[in-house]
Amino acid sequence: MTGPSFHRPVPLRPMPVFEAHDLGCLRGERAVFAGLSFRLQAGGLLLLTGPNGAGKSSLLRMLAGLLRPAAGGLTWDGAEVWDDLGAHHERLRYLGHGEAVKPPLTVAEDLRFWASLRGAGPAEVDRALERFALSGLAGRPGRLLSAGQKRRLALARVTLGPAALWLLDEPTVGLDAASVERLAAAVAEHRARRGMAAIATHIGFPGEDAQVLAVDDFPPIPVEAEALEEGAW
């Protein structure tokens, strides 16, 4: 897939649907959210909002198949995601808090490694470099990159290889205005190819027709009420 594919959208799958039903999340002994549902269609953008500690990152990790929901289910085209985690991992790209940049590896080496895992060719590596204005830094080792440059490298990695679902955790943090624009363009192009994206953000993200999901709208039942109700203790 070389060159801009704006004019000739290539559908990844006919019309995939990604759905969450009544998700519940426990972190340690604390219930974070419960009863959370959404439905994301091909080309859709889901913005996860909410204050710190509402569970945006936890939700994104659930969607990424890293964290098993304490309750509820996640389906892709009606099939439970946890029944075939490998297939789910194949179709998604995840950006977490860590940039996974290795100090001794150059930017190009880093991208080439992940490209080889994802089955992407050298052309895609070049394109990813260009897309996030990293071409000039291709030979620079990770230890000499600034925080924003590391973030751009991590974002460039997301664009490698075809993927139906992008999951980005606070992708704009540490980015300058120009880089945010580049990211927004990349997400728009991904959506134009019928890809979906779920983005956790507390400052908003530029994108058309975004579904907004406020994670703090789904609080769990307070523990006192439940304890009173059950009366077992």
Partner: peptide, 19 residues
């Protein structure tokens, strides 16, 4: 856990794991 809690909402009643 009690019936009442189940009817209130299985999904929101996460504390059943600690009961």
């Amino acid at each position: 856990m009690s019936r009442a809690a189940t009817t209130v909402g299985e999904s929101r009643s996460l504390h059943r794991f600690a009961n």
